[in-house]
Design a protein around this nucleic acid. Structure first.
Lengths: 300, 300
DNA sequence: AGACATTCATAATGGCTCCTTATGAATACC
DNA sequence: GGTATTCATAAGGAGCCATTATGAATGTCT
């Protein structure tokens, strides 16, 4: 039983070279092989396809009809293989790919748009999936389950299997209704807000900000008399504008300008850290590139 | 220096099997190879492409993003290779291809349309190039130069490098203007046409009919007093209708019905042979198929 | 017409690739 | 924690593909 092989790309490459040169010697030279190698491979290809591809005499080499028809397929095959190779190389070097990035609420209005712009400019072949206004636990779960390749969130929630890179430390600022008596007094000692109702991110494992703010208040010697909990940072600011209370947010939220609210620096150095998380074991090359862009966007 | 190979179709086949099974053992079984062979080939493909294609643990095999992207290319490559293989096989067995057939004038109105119809019905993937109203020397040259794959013409012109197959022997019939006194007398002894002007195919090497007809006249004991030479058989009949003379044509020309002419059988058994010629050394498989159709069309 | 040069096919051999069996390590499951 | 499954690695053998050497055919030049 004569071991039946299938058509291989090497044979296609050989065939096309010979089809273009119509000369075994020159084609073989172009392929960097000796002439008999070419003769044998062409002969084998002809056996496999069941039809001669060239009329040959010692003085003349010419495509048969089948050979002419095959050149089209051959070119298609080699071009497709080359496209695949290039695309794979782009993915390997991270110049292309799909990267999903999640942002915590307070980074949505500041970091997210800058990342989107920079990636589009510097890594045009990367497709970004951006998700804003998320909560830290969602982001951590998403990283671990593969839903997100990268996540920007508040530090404190260390988890197994996630690489953390500190992005920046932000000062907290107070958010007051514009008509509030303290709206003009900067810097504002945190203690001045004692007795005010607070609008705050959700408690429990759902947000890192909640604990951070209550801790700051406790350190300033008071406890907010009432709390309104709200998930999205934008809604939080809107509630302050509507007079439902005051709030503490990272200074980057100041990008979110709204009529009726004033951001007031605190006298204290209360800070929260923003970190970039990526799946530790298998992080895509494209994700690494985008991670670099995120760090770059935050630094300046 | 690590011998750099290029991507091969075998690797693509292996990759796709594994991508679909997501299990080395099953995929290897499907490919009829042992599992380590598959592992090695996949690893080599990954080395060549510069990126992992699968996340693997001992308990889980899953495509990476690059792997997912590659499946598209892989399917395209294999499908194209398969299309090429099928098309080549069609060409090899003669079920597809392009065949150029030339017909001598007197076969144009009889054999040609039947061949066209039958090929279209029985060999739908064959593209026919049909040429009618040609002269024997043109056809022989065309066969030898490759301009025609097959030719239907009159016997007598044997040539080197052409396979001849007799198709049929046709009786000659007289063509007379309908008002001619002899138009009603059938069978007509050839000698009755003595003294009539003859419309005839061109002399010399350009047509086999010319000599055949003059020989017949000589055997009947006369020589036409005047000759009008005309290339196309249709024109010949038209000239007879116009009263320019009489003519002798193979009986198949009777398919060409024209007002003003009458075909009259001869008393003598004067015949001409119709043959099919094909290039002797390299005749396409498709041409063989068409040749069979031509013979079949003529026999009935 | 004959000698020559060119070119493709074939033969024989060697190296490399690929496949095989055997074995080890890791992970999920009981 | 033991066990079974599964993938990777190692080592060896078979086969494919390459090489060099040689022969046959054809076109060309003297």
């Amino acid at each position: 039983m004569s071991r039946m092989g299938s058509m291989e790309l090497r044979q296609v490459r050989y065939f096309l070279a010979l089809a273009e040169e119509c000369h075994f010697g020159r084609a073989a030279a172009r392929l960097h092989v000796a002439q008999p190698a070419l003769s044998q491979q062409i002969k084998q290809l002809e056996r496999e396809l069941g039809t001669p591809l060239f009329h040959r005499s010692t003085r003349h080499v010419e495509l048969t009809e089948a050979g002419r028809e095959l050149t089209g397929y051959a070119r298609t095959l080699l071009a497709e293989a080359e496209r695949a190779r290039v695309h794979m190389q782009e993915l390997a070097t991270g110049r292309a790919g799909r990267v999903s990035v999640g942002f915590i609420g307070t980074a949505t209005y500041d970091v997210l748009p800058r990342v989107a712009r920079t990636v589009r400019a510097q890594l045009p072949d990367i497709t970004l999936e951006l998700h804003g206004e998320l909560l830290t636990p969602q982001l951590v779960d998403g990283l671990l389950s593969g839903g997100y390749d990268l996540a920007v969130f508040r530090s404190g929630t260390a988890a197994e299997g996630i690489d953390l890179t500190p992005l920046r430390t932000e000062k907290l600022v107070a958010v007051l209704p514009s008509h509030h008596p303290l709206a003009a007094s900067a810097p504002l000692p945190l203690g001045a807000l004692a007795g005010e109702p607070f609008v705050i991110h959700p408690a429990g494992p759902r947000s890192a900000m909640h604990d951070r703010i209550l801790t700051a208040c406790r350190e300033a010697g008071f406890q907010p008399p009432s709390l309104v909990e709200v998930g999205e940072t934008a809604t939080l600011v809107v509630l302050v504008a509507a007079g439902h209370g005051v709030a503490l947010v990272p200074e980057s939220v100041q990008s979110l300008r709204l009529d009726g609210v004033t951001y007031v620096p605190l006298a204290e150095q209360e800070t929260v850290d923003l970190v970039l998380g990526r799946r530790a074991p298998h992080s895509t090359a494209a994700a690494q590139q985008v991670a670099a862009v995120v760090e770059e966007c935050v630094r300046e």
